[in-house]
C-alpha cells in the first residue's frame, strides 16, 4: 500500500509514502494547515481511499462543508469525522453517517473509540483497505491534557496506523508548545511536513521521508490544489 500527499512537486520528490506512515505537520498559525490536511484527505478520496478526520477546532459540519463547498466529485460516504467541538459548545447533536461526536477534546477514550469505529466500518463493511487519519489538531488536545497523556494516546493510535497500513497526519501549531513537547512527540512520527513563514508568504518542506529534507517551496492553496513555486 502506498500513499501520496496530493501536492505534486513534493510527491515527486518523496515518492510513494508506504502504508503505516505517521507524519507530523507543524507550522505557524494561519499558514493554511487546515486546508493542507483537508487536501491530503481529499487526495485519498480521489484515490478511492477512506479518510477519518478528527476535528478539535471546527464543528464536524464545517469540515464536511469544506468538501461540499468545493463541489468535488468524490464519494462522501468515505469520509468519517470525529467531532470534538460541537458538544463542548452545548449542542446535543446526534451522530450521523459522516460525523461521530466525541464529548470533548479531553475525552481521549471517546475519540479513540470513534476513530476505531470508522476504521472498522471502512475496512469491514466498505472493504476499503487504504485509510488516512488526519488529526487537526494535537495542539488543542494538548491544551486540555498533559503531554504524557497525549503521548500515550498517540502511542496507541500511531501503532494502529501501522497495523492497518494506513497513513496518519497530525497537525501541531508551532509556537504553542515548548521544545521538549515537540521533541517528545516527534519520536512517534516517521516524518514531518514543516511550514514556515517566508519573504513572500509561507513555505513548505518534507523531512524524514527521504534521506535528505526536500527544499523549501513557497506555496499557495488554490481550491484543492497546492501550487508550489521555486
Amino acid at each position: 500500500m502506498a500513499y501520496n500527499l496530493g501536492i505534486p512537486k513534493l510527491d515527486d520528490l518523496i515518492g510513494d509514502i508506504r502504508g503505516g506512515t505517521n507524519i507530523m505537520m507543524i507550522g505557524p498559525p494561519m499558514s493554511g494547515k487546515e486546508d493542507l490536511i483537508n487536501i491530503i484527505a481529499y487526495r485519498g478520496l480521489v484515490d478511492r481511499d477512506a479518510a477519518v478526520i478528527v476535528s478539535t477546532r471546527e464543528p464536524g459540519n464545517n469540515v464536511l462543508e469544506w468538501f461540499e463547498r468545493r463541489n468535488l466529485n468524490i464519494s462522501m460516504d468515505r469520509i468519517g469525522i470525529v467531532d470534538c467541538v460541537t458538544r463542548t459548545l452545548g449542542f446535543a447533536a446526534p451522530d450521523t453517517e459522516n460525523i461521530k461526536m466525541a464529548s470533548s477534546p479531553v475525552d481521549l477514550t471517546g475519540i479513540g473509540v470513534k476513530i476505531s469505529q470508522f476504521f472498522e466500518h471502512f475496512w469491514m463493511e466498505m472493504q476499503l483497505r487504504e485509510t488516512r487519519l488526519c488529526i487537526n489538531s494535537l495542539s488543542t488536545i494538548l491544551m486540555y491534557s498533559n503531554l504524557q497523556t497525549v503521548f500515550r494516546f498517540l502511542h496507541v493510535f500511531t501503532g494502529r496506523i501501522k497495523a492497518a497500513n494506513a497513513l496518519g497526519v497530525y497537525v501541531i501549531e508551532e509556537g504553542m508548545h515548548d521544545a521538549q513537547t515537540i521533541v517528545t512527540l516527534k519520536q512517534l512520527f516517521d516524518g514531518m511536513i514543516e511550514i514556515r513563514e517566508g519573504d513572500d508568504g509561507y513555505q513548505i518542506r518534507v523531512v524524514g521521508l527521504t534521506p535528505k529534507p526536500t527544499p523549501w517551496f513557497d506555496y499557495e492553496v488554490n481550491g484543492v490544489d497546492v501550487v508550489l513555486r521555486g
Binding site: R87, T88, G90, A92, S103, S104, L108, T109, G110
Partner: peptide, 11 residues
C-alpha cells in the same frame, strides 16, 4: 470527568 453533565444526560 470528561463530559459536560448535560451532555452526559443526552448521551
Amino acid at each position: 470527568s470528561s463530559t459536560d453533565p448535560q451532555m452526559i444526560r443526552d448521551q
